[in-house]
Amino acid sequence: MKNTLRLLRTERGWSQAELADQLDVSRQSVNAIETGKYDPSLPLAFAIARLFGRGIEEIFDDGQGVTQAAD
């Protein structure tokens, strides 16, 4: 899954370790998410979204576009 985490982080001038500290995860976790090796769980995705003040779908893109609500 693509994401803009690295961009958002560097915009704020944070290192991976600083972001990891704020999310209370390991630096390796942040690196794995940024490089797309690992997709975060929903709670962690929410935590990231809250930290940057964005919606989850603004940060993470599964390439499927916006899901339409069921009729």
Binding site: Q22, D24, S29, S41, P43, L44, A47, L51
Partner: peptide, 12 residues
Amino acid sequence: MATIMQPRGFRI
């Protein structure tokens, strides 16, 4: 800084 939900306590 915004209060965030902490999925797991890595530091602890």
